[in-house]
Design a protein around this nucleic acid. Structure first.
Lengths: 188, 188
DNA sequence: CAATCACTATACCGGTTGGTACACTAATTT
DNA sequence: AAATTAGTGTACCAACCGGTATAGTGATTG
């Protein structure tokens, strides 16, 4: 594998474990086995490296979400597909998901939040649009698009956190259970 | 106000806005208007400052949660009281809540996560115990204490995030809506 | 009055940070 | 064969980091 790719892999592992701010360029190049100018040749700056790392993984992720969130009249089915897109991506990209989940709660003025926000906004809009379209068939959703989009993603991330920490395992019915709880609560 | 207190206030504001790692001791003492040895006299180290800052706010917070989570046979009522404890504390301590919410998603090896974890664990146990006791009256909760405790806190934090970003305002029925959604889902 | 105390200022430390100037090599292009 | 190019190593930089040795302050206590 070439150095350019190896840099992405190693920095992802280090960032997800220790955080973007706690990892120095020197840590990364040491792990890859190269010298600093090589990294700067490819990515220009630490921020540029983060940008490349994010778009590399977010593009396929958000494409999968867009496909899953395409509404065709069956809200429960669509929510299930969205949940599956999130959970299976998180399972296949544990380090990356850990990192973006962390960054999405980073302080308002941090570079990390500012860099990750556009990708998260795109996700949010896909889900919000889904609830807007579904509100034609479900009157009680009207005027609550934003709240439900946020709380649906919130619930997904809550269960994905459990998954990442291995407090719960990815069984076939996890997706079903999450969506069911979101739709009908805990009393059923 | 004395310097010792002013240090706590200023560091909270800086940490919540920029993050613990991005703020240097120099930033804090500049904002307070003192010199470094004064800060080190009171708090010994940057980590000691964080520890003091956390316990200062977490003690009253968790006491309020403990009182609210005391189960007496009415689960919806108790959940409402817990939700109120969380939401009203968050509203009165926006900077602090923003900071701990961020720290609770920090990377596994970070000092911030390790320092905040004991306080969050205490919270979690209070809520989990509530669901364990309630499962005597609600058979369908059995064996799901952990998942429900986590997802209840997760939902609270999801709505508190909205509150902190002022995407939703603290009306009288916010607490009711959150608990209702948790118990009965979005279809009711 | 002398001694102790909590507190604060000056000045400094070794180590690390993100980033770079420059030289070199090996492959590709002309 | 000459020139260009991408990629990499050596050595270095100013700025900043958390932390401290030391001395001095003014108020309290013996």
């Amino acid at each position: 594998m070439d150095n350019k790719t190896k840099i992405l892999e190693c920095s992802l592992e280090l960032f997800s474990l220790h955080g973007f701010n706690s990892i120095g360029i020197q840590d990364i190049v040491d792990k890859v086995g190269i010298k600093k100018p090589t990294l700067y040749h490819y990515y220009g700056s630490k921020e540029g490296l983060l940008q490349s790392l994010l778009s590399e993984h977010f593009k396929p992720f958000n494409n999968a979400v867009r496909q899953a969130a395409d509404y065709h009249g069956d809200l429960p089915k669509t929510l299930n597909e969205v949940a599956f897109a999130f959970i299976s991506f998180a399972k296949d990209n544990k380090n990356f998901y850990r990192m973006i989940l962390s960054m999405s709660f980073d302080p308002p003025e941090s570079i990390t939040l500012k860099t990750v926000t556009p990708f998260l906004t795109e996700q949010f809009q896909l889900i919000e649009e889904l609830f807007i379209k579904a509100s034609n068939n479900h009157g009680n959703l009207k005027g609550r698009h934003m709240r439900y989009a946020v709380s649906f993603i919130g619930m997904l991330n809550t269960y994905i956190s459990l998954l990442l920490n291995e407090h719960v395992s990815l069984t076939d019915d996890l997706v079903y259970n999450v969506v069911h709880q979101f739709m009908h609560g805990i009393f059923s």
